[in-house]
Design a protein around this nucleic acid. Structure first.
Lengths: 123, 123
DNA sequence: TCACTATTCAACTATCTGGTTGACAACGAC
DNA sequence: GTCGTTGTCAACCAGATAGTTGAATAGTGA
């Protein structure tokens, strides 16, 4: 349903088993069988997890006889960190601005109780 | 089902509508009604999305009369970036190590004896 | 008190997800 | 060719999710 890249990446990493596999692949490439070993789920379930990761672009698979070694594609992480950083930073700046405004209000005078300040959002 | 924090955060951001809301909240706090406005889904659906975001710790809600202003909790982003950076870096280092090994192999195959072998690559 | 606004809760439905099992495709070895 | 290994595909099931509508709650204003 949700088919944009970023959604697929986040969704892929929302599963602890798949994050675990990513952690494993960060150490080095591995075949499906090697990845499946630590878990007591079926081989096919692991194969499905890998499909989710490859669909998200986080993992690529090559061919070695009947084996399909998996390789971590670390560049996709940049897509996420860029998105995250953008809004983290934006929120951070806003927080600092608000902080400054509050400090200014405080150092000014306090006429009455400043009801609620929730102005300024509205895009 | 999956109840660890990181999974909830990733899952929350796997939906483009919720990412959109986060983007909106990075600009400034907003009430549920203000957040709902751009979308043509029901008010209740938006309320549910906000619940997912608050459960993930990405958003907090306060009280202002009958309004429930939403506030972005940017610190949670750190949890993600830490996780991502860890494995991105690990993969990057491995890639560079592999690169070095390949370069060495290449220089070794040409002349009869260049002799200084490195340790076996990651495996 | 009543009406209004803002938001959540409860129940229901359709779709997605993660797991299962069984069949089968690709490949190397015999 | 046949066998064992490695992995995928298809069908199915249970539980979660995202949406719906209708009712309920909480606060404001008259």
């Amino acid at each position: 349903m949700v088919d944009d890249h970023l959604s697929r990446v986040f969704a892929a990493l929302a599963d602890p088993t798949r994050r675990d596999m990513v952690a494993r692949l960060a150490v080095g490439d591995a075949t499906v069988g090697e990845l499946a070993e630590p878990y007591d789920v079926s081989f096919q379930a692991v194969s499905k997890h890998i499909k989710v990761l490859t669909d998200a672009g986080l993992v690529s698979q090559s061919r070695d006889a009947q084996r399909r070694p998996c390789h971590l594609e670390a560049e996709v992480f940049d897509l996420m960190t860029k998105w995250i950083e953008r809004y983290r930073q934006q929120a951070q700046e806003r927080y600092e601005r608000l902080d400054a405004v509050l400090a200014e209000m405080k150092s000014a005078e306090q006429p009455a109780k400043p009801r609620h300040r929730k102005q300024g959002a509205a895009s």
